[in-house]
Design a binder for these strands. Sequence first.
DNA 1: TATTGTTATACTCTATAACTATA
DNA 2: TATAGTTATAGAGTATAACAATA
Lengths: 179, 179
Amino acid sequence: MTQRRPRLSADDPAGEDPAGGGAGEVPDDVTAAVERVLSAAALLWSRADQGLEPAVSPIQLRAVEAIARFGRPNLGRLAEELGAIPSSASRLCDRLEAAGLVVRENAVADRREIIVRLSKQGERLYSELTGRRRAAVREVLAQLSPASRGRLIDALTEFDLARERQDAGSSEAVGSRTA
Amino acid sequence: MTQRRPRLSADDPAGEDPAGGGAGEVPDDVTAAVERVLSAAALLWSRADQGLEPAVSPIQLRAVEAIARFGRPNLGRLAEELGAIPSSASRLCDRLEAAGLVVRENAVADRREIIVRLSKQGERLYSELTGRRRAAVREVLAQLSPASRGRLIDALTEFDLARERQDAGSSEAVGSRTA
DNA sequence: TATTGTTATACTCTATAACTATA
DNA sequence: TATAGTTATAGAGTATAACAATA
């Protein structure tokens, strides 16, 4: 799950708050078209774990990804990256370690710290995941002409630059959460 | 979580299988650029639930989305859409109902069936979610010039058509899983 | 007998709080 | 005293298997 904020409990009546809304200016049809692609892209991306071997849970897979990104994080850093608290990350590592995907090691500098790294098998799993994602993207791109691909990459680059500008401005947001 | 296949248990040594790989033809830099944007897009999309009121869990939110898409699915149809088994969906509905987000009703045609629909509060929550996603996309698009937006929508439309062709060809895949 | 949904049981995942070890 | 991590406990989320009700 990975959220820090308290959630609605089963015995809790629930709260109020409309909120929502957004800036005008951008035509609705453009927004809708981009939304549709984003939605499909998110699906394409998340489907890459289908048939992965061994079939770890999405949560464990996400932890493997986070560890791969950081190389050798300590447990606190890993928890932060997952948007979880150290306790949860510790328990998750228990299971990952039991599954043979990660290894816990004592840090040399500060003996309180525990370094988490991927095992050989964990690295293999991560490679398979990234390979599958790349393959999925390639399969779609292969259907486009080189000229179309050129236009696509130009447009996406523009979008990504805009997104980064936007992202930099709204850093008061909460945790990461790849969910 | 929502997967049907057996997962690696904590007491299970784990399996083998390299796999991965993909079709050549498409240049690596193009693939990598698209991947980067897809990754960011998936993140943008999944972050829309930040600060939602009431703060339901991602799993419950996903169920709300599925119910909203279908209108009034029976429990089995909902489970199928979530990539879960009826038992899990039933338990999930217990919590959603307790939280006041959905309502269970007896079907008129077949008295074995249970129809699941959003409560007023559930619909409000769903509206807020879609509103937030739309706003997030708008904010990014607002940073682009109208000409850039035109190019973007053309490129995305091409990509989406290619994806749909691809998707139609690989329908032997398992469940949906938005994870 | 087949289908729809629920309940019993067990495991993963997560948070809060209390604890241990090191700094 | 503060920090890094673990353990105890409790609840959400899920699957398998056994069950009830309807077709």
